[in-house]
Design a binder for these strands. Structure first.
Length: 1060
RNA sequence: GCGGUUAUAGCUCAGUCGGUUAGAGCGCAUCCCUGAUAAGGAUGAGGUCCCAGGUUCAAGUCCUGGUAACCGCACCA
């Protein structure tokens, strides 16, 4: 017996049972051990490590749904796919959470609290939500090995990272520099460019025009009291001013203002001073002529060690906005720093690393840098230096974690010189198989073209410590392993001890002996960017090169497949690629899917703060995991952002998953009733056309889905599966119903084969439903314990009969038109109609349709089918040019030809067409001879028929009813109502009955005489009594047929239970 | 500001090589069927294919320029 599915059971319950089954039978680990036993080739998947210090959201489910599909698919294809989970443990996100918990707001408080207890809390908080992640991961059926997950904070992982840093050090790719970097003053650390890009926000800042009065204007022929006019959007950087830059090739003029003569670029005079403003006496100066001018800076709090406060030239200065004169503060801008070095300018740093103004900055000492803006502006105004103040709206980078505005700030930090391998990174990017493909030369290609050195160090606490020790004498050393550390340490050290911790502050206490001066070397204070950790996972997860050397080098690198969100292009995808190229001169992954964002039901971005984030559990608990997964696969390709709501998910899944289960239940219901030996079925090639058709569709499906998945096109694959399920249920099953009731073993076997193959095809997509199907179809004795241990189906091309597939499409088209025609006729389907008139597009089609006449009759409930050939006197035709052919041949004449054909005699043209003669048309004075294939002849719906036409097909129904036909219709009505009563009486479909029908209509009595036996056999009635006495306790129903204006009563009892 | 992606029915999305009447599902309306039944199916209404140009006999499709949304990039002072 096949297991019937409980229709009342909700999907989540069924899925939980499947989860139990997988767990108790160890199915997931079997998918790996079984392939190991076979010595299967490995297919390598890397799991990008999430941080488990927050609850997982829908977007995490999304990523995991895509990630899960391909390993399952490849496993079924016979590959060994290990799936090691991973957790990102280090970094600012973790520290921020802990700071929040402790109520801290800066590094000073952490230092006071102590790095050791702080890092201990970080370590503990990292896995705080591991359980929540585990539950989600398991519930959605994402098979990944959580018990053997790599964690970036483990000693082994850190040691591998150290090894890699030393490799870079040896190659001269790791260096320290004093550079202007994006810097978060709140967190006291520089950020890398990919972190910066996460935090741009539109803000309104004050932009001001400031006077820099010139000291020696007259020397250059300028009015004595003139001043440079400088524009800035960051007033707080003015105390750091050391120079003013002009464009060497632009022209500058003097404009008179309330505040005296001002120097600006000539192209910007009107923009700054308003329309009609003009320069004084028309004199103009080239930028280069202005160099050497000195000015009084607004603030002179700092002693200069070199001459400053003078005019220099800079290529980056443009006349696009501002005044064409740029204020230079080397501490606060990369360009400024560069131009400062070129011009031998001093550097002053009025802001300390905590973001507060230093003591010397009298007016604003101790102020938070951004808070100094209004004070500076007010001060400038009082002193007559402020020419104009505007509000300037622009996007400005903010810290991606603490949300404070960043400063560009000159500081010592460590860099990876990836710009030195830029060409190789670009070259190797060409080998990556990006999905969607435009990322390769678009988003990621652009990034590589504009590469800057990777700012690696973080002035923080909880991260992989930078393994560089330095001596007062300047000697530096990079440590690449714990053994090396122990060997060079001045105090004994046992890396194998359980107490050994390479994190801060422990590692800070390790001192090395300087090989140069014999002094003591201390570790530099920085830790590294946690993105480096994640980029190191291909080798660090294996503790390479200390362990697994061969495995890494021969098998586990590069990955065949990775998949994450689009936002990882500059994140993980990038760090993997860069480390792959720099360390191994290799790509780190072959194929990569970048998926888009999840939006809420209204198309807005989901965010915790906006409160519109959908909790994945709301959907998992109602619609179920397969529904969620299926929606993600079928609704849109992964790279598109998609709307997401509970309704959208259940909607899409109900139709697809529901139809599959219904089809399965239909099979089970009938198969259990028939109890056939399915092995007695004919070979596929010897079965009926309907069976061969659906098996052809199936094998076509197998071949197409396989081809799609091989190139990671999961959405087209899902949509083809969807279309097949529809064909299976709504054509094969419906057309085969009578055959199932007749217990035709071929029909059963064909449906079983379709469902069995479907269970395997669906396994990577909807693993729960697939499993239910699979186990059910094998009646508890499956060849493998799970569909996920099965092999992927192979298409049997010999079963794909293209002609049969095409003919069936034509048949479906004709039936569809027939239904449309019947709907127009107003006659219910149960009422047989005398005749369907069918016109196919071509003679070949008509010939094929003639073989399917009985199917047309049955589908449309008509007594006969007549094919219309050209020449029927009641048919008229639309004549159109076959544009594909005619377009090329006649070119510009086509519009006129089209028009001419509208007014030709349709019948004559059709006759010519039918006899394969050319047809002459006059077009713009020319006579064109059209070949038959250049014409399209479409029959028009004839008058007086219920008819429907579409693209060359026509179906018309004759609707004159005879009393005979009406009685036949009535018989079907009677049967139908008896069936209804059977059901409401709670009978099993195999139960036999005794039957009574009573009514006063002459027509009814005649019908029952005529069709009594049919009624009996259709309803499994052993007896039929017309107008007889109904026993007590029988199930009764009154029936009123409005169409026929008659009423009758039916009654039945289960055979053998009549009590009279 | 620069770059990318997207724009087709109320919603979610297809639309091949440029070709004749632009499709599906959901929703809506009408109806049918029912031995898959707390299912299933059909029919119908619903379209400025974002806008404007251009190429072409012919454009949802190709080109140019815009617009909008999303994403990315950006030290532009």
């Amino acid at each position: 017996m096949f297991t019937e599915l409980d229709a009342k059971q909700k999907a989540p319950e069924r899925e939980k049972a499947t989860l139990e089954y997988w767990k108790s039978n160890d199915i997931f680990s079997q998918t790996i051990t079984s392939r190991e036993a076979e010595g299967a080739q490995e297919w390598v998947f890397y799991e990008g490590p999430p941080t488990a210090n927050g609850r997982p959201g829908v977007h995490h489910v999304q990523a995991r749904a895509y990630k899960d599909l391909f390993p399952r698919y490849k496993t079924m294809q016979g590959y060994l796919v290990r799936r090691k989970a991973g957790w990102d443990c280090h970094g600012l996100p973790v520290e921020i959470e802990v700071e929040k918990k402790l109520g801290f707001s800066g590094k000073l408080e952490i230092e006071k609290y102590g790095v050791e207890p702080f890092n201990k809390m970080c370590r503990e908080s990292v896995m705080e939500y591991e359980q929540a992640w585990r539950e989600m991961t398991e519930r959605i059926g994402f098979w990944v090995n959580l018990d053997d997950a790599y964690m970036t904070m483990t000693n082994n992982f850190v040691e591998s990272v150290w090894w890699s840093l030393k490799e870079l050090w040896k190659k001269g790719l790791l260096y320290q520099g004093y550079k202007v970097v994006p810097y978060c003053a709140q967190d006291g650390t520089p950020l890398s460019s990919h972190e910066v890009s996460q935090g741009y926000k539109d803000v309104k800042d004050a932009s001001i025009y400031v006077r820099f009065p010139l000291k020696n204007a007259a020397e250059k022929g300028l009015p004595q009291d003139s001043a440079l006019l400088v524009w800035t959007t960051t007033p707080w950087t003015l105390p750091g001013n050391v120079a003013a830059a002009v464009a060497p090739n632009l022209n500058y003029v003097v404009v008179e203002s309330e505040l005296g003569p001002l120097v600006v670029c000539d192209a910007l005079v009107e923009k700054v001073f308003g329309e009609g403003a003009t320069a004084v006496d028309g004199k103009s100066f080239k930028g280069t002529e202005l160099t050497g001018l000195e000015y009084e800076a607004p603030y002179t709090w700092f002693e200069f060690d070199k001459p400053g406060h003078r005019v220099i030239t800079g290529d980056f200065v443009t006349a696009e906005d501002g005044t064409g004169i740029v204020h230079i503060a080397p501490a606060f801008g990369a360009d400024d720093m560069l131009v400062g070095q070129e011009n031998n300018l001093p550097v002053v740093r009025p802001v300390d690393p905590q973001g507060r103004f230093v003591e010397e900055a009298e007016l604003i000492k101790g102020q938070w840098f951004k808070d100094a803006d209004p004070i500076v502006i007010k001060d400038l105004k009082i002193r007559g230096l402020l020419f104009k103040k505007l509000v300037y709206e622009h996007s400005y980078p903010h810290c991606w974690r603490c949300k404070n505005p960043l400063m560009y700030y000159a500081t010592d930090s460590w860099f990876i010189r990836n710009t030195s391998v830029q060409d190789r990174l670009i070259e190797k990017n060409q080998e990556l198989d990006w999905h969607p493909s435009h990322i390769k030369n678009g988003r990621y290609g652009d990034w590589l073209n504009n590469l800057v050195d990777w700012a690696l160090s973080r002035n923080r606490y909880w991260g992989t410590p930078l393994p560089i020790w330095e001596c007062e004498c300047g000697e530096r050393d990079c440590i690449g392993s714990y053994a090396e550390l122990a060997e060079k340490s001045t105090t004994p050290l046992d890396p194998s001890s359980p107490d050994f911790d390479p994190h801060r502050p422990h590692v800070d206490n390790v001192k090395l002996k300087c090989p140069k001066c014999q002094g003591e070397m201390s570790r530099v204070p920085e830790v590294i960017d946690c993105w480096y950790d994640s980029g190191a996972m291909p080798f660090a997860q294996l503790h390479y090169p200390f362990e697994n050397k061969e495995r890494f080098e021969k098998i586990a690198f590069p990955a065949d497949f990775i998949c994450e969100g689009l936002d990882q292009t500059r994140g993980w995808f990038n760090s993997l690629h860069q480390l792959g190229v720099m360390l191994f001169d290799s790509i780190a992954y072959k194929s990569v899917i970048c998926h888009g964002l999840v939006l809420d039901g209204n198309g807005n971005k989901m965010s915790k703060t906006a409160g519109n984030a959908v909790d994945p559990w709301d959907i998992l608990n109602t619609a179920g995991a397969d529904a969620l997964r299926w929606y993600l696969y079928v609704s849109a390709p992964p790279e598109l952002s998609r709307r997401f709501s509970e309704e959208l998910v259940s909607e899409s899944a109900r139709r697809f998953l529901g139809t599959i289960l219904n089809t399965y239940n239909f099979f089970v219901l009938n198969a259990n009733a028939a109890r056939l030996d399915l092995s007695k079925a004919n070979k596929p090639a010897d079965r009926e056309a309907l069976d061969r058709w659906v098996l052809g569709r199936l094998n076509q499906l197998i071949s197409e889905v396989t081809a799609d998945l091989d190139v990671f096109d999961l959405t087209p694959a899902a949509r083809k599966l969807d279309a097949f399920v529809d064909d299976l249920s709504n054509w094969f099953v419906r057309r085969s119903r009578r055959r199932f009731w007749a217990e035709e073993v071929d029909a059963f076997q064909t449906l079983w084969e379709c469902l069995e193959a479907l269970s395997r095809l669906l396994a990577p997509f909807v693993p729960f439903t697939a499993e239910t199907l699979y186990l059910g179809l094998y009646q508890g004795k499956p060849p493998h314990a799970s569909v996920h241990l099965e092999s992927w189906p192979k298409a049997d091309e010999s079963l794909i009969d293209k002609t049969l597939l095409e003919n069936t499409e034509v048949l479906q088209k004709v039936v569809s038109l027939g239904r449309s025609a019947r709907s127009e006729s107003g006659h219910r389907t149960r009422q047989p109609l005398p005749e369907a008139l069918v016109r196919a597009k071509t003679a070949e089609q008509q010939e094929e349709l003639e073989a399917s006449v009985d199917q047309i009759m049955e589908e449309l409930n008509v007594k006969s089918v007549r094919f219309l050939s050209i020449g029927e006197e009641f048919l008229d035709y639309d004549i159109k040019p076959n544009l594909r052919l005619v377009g090329k041949k006649y070119g510009k004449l086509v519009p006129a030809l089209k028009k001419a054909l509208q007014s030709v005699d349709g019948k004559a043209a059709a006759a010519a067409f039918a006899s394969q003669e050319t047809f002459k048309v006059d077009v713009e004075g020319e006579t064109l001879e059209l070949l038959p294939e250049e014409l399209l002849v479409e029959a028009k719906s004839p008058e007086g028929f219920a008819a429907a036409e579409d693209s060359g097909y026509l179906v018309a129904l004759t609707t004159e009813l005879t009393p005979e036909l009406e009685r036949e219709g009535l018989a079907r009505d009677v049967v139908r109502h008896i069936q209804e009563l059977r059901k409401t009486s709670g009978l099993e479909i195999t139960d036999r009955i005794e039957l009574w029908v009573a009514g006063e209509s002459e027509m009814l009595n005649k019908t029952l005489q005529e069709y009594g036996d049919t009624v009996k056999s259709e309803t499994l009635a052993l007896s039929l009594s017309v107008n007889g006495t109904v026993p007590e306790g029988a199930n009764k129903a009154e029936v009123e047929l409005k169409v026929l204006e008659l009423a009758f009563t039916i009654a039945l009892v289960k055979a053998g239970e009549a009590n009279s």
